[in-house]
């Protein structure tokens, strides 16, 4: 069963409609969300995370359509979100910050300390648990951000450009972390413009262009679409560029 489904989903800001209509479903496993800058990836993730209510369309989580405030709040307990512009309270320690986010997600008080410690351990921040967020490096902040996203044991993790600011070693560690999440029966939607990240961990791919899903399928299928003359160093990159070029040509 898909963890999250969207049908005819539309979203925008003011007069601008960033996503005219999107239909998608994300199941357990790691799904990559690729798209050029301005394609609407962040807007889509914020909508799926229920941060911004959709303008139109239907959004369902674990088969339950999200209509009422109560249904939305219930779904949020099972959604972890790492926004691209991840914010934090500089005066909080890493432990306190993740603990606060666990409280926001209604993790029961009795299990919260263990959940926070486990989340920090999974992202390799246990030794920095008492360090203030303001004193963490960029990479450590990203890991703290991932820890707050997974602290409640969510069924859906939405990660918006999570590898920005990470060095190569940290990115490799991050990929291992993503793989371990799937073992927990979790669906991960990974938004990035780094195709090599996607190639390394994602089974399924969505390509977003101008607020529309222009490709949905296995990574292999995207590679197979690659035009040999297209830009790119890998078959996946060439497949991605081919799809974008086709969309531009049709437009």
């Amino acid at each position: 069963m898909p963890v999250v489904e969207a049908e005819g989903l539309a979203q925008g800001y003011g007069a601008k409609e960033v996503i005219p209509e999107v239909t998608l479903s994300v199941s357990v496993g790691i799904t990559g969300l690729l798209g050029p800058n301005g394609a609407g990836k962040t807007t889509l993730l914020r909508t799926l995370a229920t941060v911004a209510p959709p303008r139109r369309g239907r959004l369902a989580f674990l088969g339950q359509e999200l209509r009422s405030e109560r249904e939305i709040r219930k779904a949020r307990r099972n959604i972890g979100f790492l926004p691209q512009d991840f914010g934090y309270f500089a005066s909080f320690t890493a432990y306190e910050f993740v603990n606060y986010c666990a409280w926001l997600r209604e993790v029961p008080r009795k299990v919260r300390p263990a959940a926070v410690s486990e989340a920090l351990e999974r992202v390799g921040l246990s030794s920095r648990a008492r360090t203030k967020m303001g004193a963490l490096s960029g990479g450590m902040l990203r890991r703290a951000g991932i820890a707050q996203a997974i602290v409640a044991g969510p069924r859906l993790v939405l990660l918006d450009e999570p590898t920005v600011g990470l060095d190569p070693e940290q990115r490799l560690d991050f990929r291992e972390l993503l793989k371990s999440l799937v073992e927990d029966d979790t669906a991960v939607l990974l938004s990035t413009h780094l195709v090599e990240d996607v190639a390394a961990v994602c089974g399924d791919l969505l390509v977003l262009s101008d607020g529309k899903i222009v490709f949905a399928g296995r990574a292999q299928a995207l590679e197979n679409m690659a035009n040999p003359d297209a830009k790119g160093d890998t078959p996946l990159e060439r497949g991605y560029m081919t799809v974008l070029k086709q969309v531009a040509h049709q437009a």
């Binding site: 941060v51 949020r76 914010g87 500089a90 986010c101 926001l104 997600r105 707050q148």
Partner: peptide
């Protein structure tokens, strides 16, 4: 304004009712 200032709006869109926070 702390939530807005520290750009934690997205994290604060959580299961817990806003009034409790």
């Amino acid at each position: 304004q702390r939530v807005h200032r520290s750009a934690t709006d997205a994290q604060f869109t959580a299961a817990r009712p806003a009034w409790q926070v």
